[in-house]
């Protein structure tokens, strides 16, 4: 099935086309989202939401970019949205705890072990992921798309809708920040 056939099928709400799309992109979406949210349960929820959004809004997809670019954009935005809402819940949680009527656990990112990391690197990778979680949203998105999905700067610039030099700058700043935080931890 070619990309244009797939898009046409999706626009006609063809279940076969949708199944094909999910099977083709589920790992890319899940891996990207998992690397951002760093929690398998949340990653599955967000990945499902990504495909639901694709299914619902495919009629508005004009085909100006590749389908994969559009899906990566939705996945990145959704994952970052979840992190933002968790952070605001955490902030609100601190406030409600002051008044003593909050029994729900607030968002505390623990150690995250990505399933694709080699066993002998797990400990170092966990430290790196902890540092990645501290990066600003745009740096985090660029770094993860480049390192975890092996996307080129050009592809990342299409996804994030910024110029290639801007992606280079985001990557440079991300690496500098990670180096600084890791150095701070190893002192």
């Amino acid at each position: 099935m070619t990309e244009s056939e797939l898009i046409q099928g999706l626009k006609e709400k063809d279940e076969k086309a949708f199944r094909h799309l999910v099977e083709q992109f589920q790992d890319q979406v899940y891996n990207t989202v998992l690397s951002i949210v760093q929690n398998p349960q949340d990653a599955e929820d967000v990945a499902q939401e990504v495909f639901i959004q694709v299914y619902r809004s495919v009629s508005s997809f004009k085909g100006e970019s590749r389908l994969s670019t559009w899906i990566y954009r939705i996945a990145t935005t959704r994952a970052l949205d979840l992190l933002r809402s968790k952070k605001s819940k955490k902030r609100f949680g601190v406030l409600t705890r002051l008044f003593g009527n909050d029994n729900e656990p607030v968002f505390e990112p623990g150690d995250f072990n990505h399933p694709g990391v080699a066993l002998d690197r797990k400990e170092n990778a966990a430290r790196l992921f902890k540092a990645i979680s501290r990066l600003p949203d745009n740096q985090k998105a660029a770094f993860i798309l480049h390192k975890m999905e092996n996307l080129s700067y050009q592809e990342i610039s299409d996804i994030l809708q910024v110029s290639v030099p801007a992606v280079e700058s985001l990557m440079h700043r991300a690496k500098a920040n990670l180096r600084k935080w890791i150095a701070g931890q190893t002192d």
Binding site: V29, N31, I182
Partner: peptide, 24 residues
């Protein structure tokens, strides 16, 4: 530090959980 930064080089892509489509 370099060792930590390079720890995700050559990382394998995480696969979506089993029965992802069914659950979706």
């Amino acid at each position: 530090i370099e060792e930590i930064l390079n720890s995700i080089e050559g990382i394998r892509r995480a696969s979506a959980p089993e029965f992802f489509y069914t659950r979706l």
